[in-house]
């Protein structure tokens, strides 16, 4: 086809239009599966962080990660010591900050079985009680901030009475759940 201005513009516009429609259709088709996947991920994380003998879970977040937002979900024993932490969202540096998602990483180990309310919530470099990840001080600080956030939300929640539900509902705040075994 000759490269006249009219031809070029028409062809380019039609291709773009068709492409957008096609992609839009696929997007619409995958909206539900994707939402389901994300809900599942959270539900699974929730199940993993709460101790089998019963406890609480609370979400916390920080926007001060090296690559942006860090979101995690913290599971507490009834005496508000930490049982387990799972990272939900992070875009930290692979190999450095992303270590926070690994099992037995230094941050998790610093928090396990400790009560955040009785800790100095900062990295050792800043005079705190938490061991930072090697070469990822900014990521570590954000992680700590997020744990503190989760603890704060939990404390706020203790005041009100929440219904215990069979199906775990995760809100943006804290969730009280008992694991029925």
């Amino acid at each position: 086809m000759k490269s006249t201005l009219k031809n070029m513009v028409t062809v380019l516009l039609s291709i773009t239009l068709l492409a957008s429609l096609g992609v839009g259709a696929v997007n619409w088709l995958t909206l539900e599966p994707i939402a389901r996947v994300q809900a599942n991920a959270e539900r699974e994380a929730l199940a993993r962080v709460v101790p089998a003998s019963g406890g609480f879970a609370s979400k916390g977040a920080s926007d001060n990660g090296y690559g942006g937002r860090v979101e995690l979900i913290v599971g507490f024993h009834p005496d508000t010591t930490i049982y387990h932490i799972e990272v939900l969202t992070q875009t930290e540096t692979p190999g450095l900050g992303t270590v926070m998602t690994e099992e037995e990483n230094l941050l998790l180990r610093s928090f396990r079985r400790r009560n955040p309310g009785e800790m100095k919530l900062s990295v050792r470099k800043d005079g705190g009680d938490v061991d930072a990840l090697t070469g990822a001080t900014v990521s570590s600080r954000a992680y700590i901030e997020a744990v503190g956030d989760a603890y704060n939300r939990l404390s706020k929640m203790e005041g009100s009475e929440e219904q215990v539900e069979q199906d775990i509902e995760v809100h943006s705040g804290a969730t009280k759940t008992h694991n029925d075994e």
């Binding site: 926007d63 001060n64 990660g65 090296y66 942006g68 540096t93 692979p94 070469g135 900014v138």
Partner: peptide, 22 residues
């Protein structure tokens, strides 16, 4: 976003160098 400009700039040039790290 609290991450300082310095951290971003220094980090992007050296620590997280786009070619050599990413």
């Amino acid at each position: 976003m609290e991450t300082s400009f310095f951290a971003i700039v220094f980090g992007s040039i050296f620590v997280n160098n786009v070619v050599l790290t990413q």
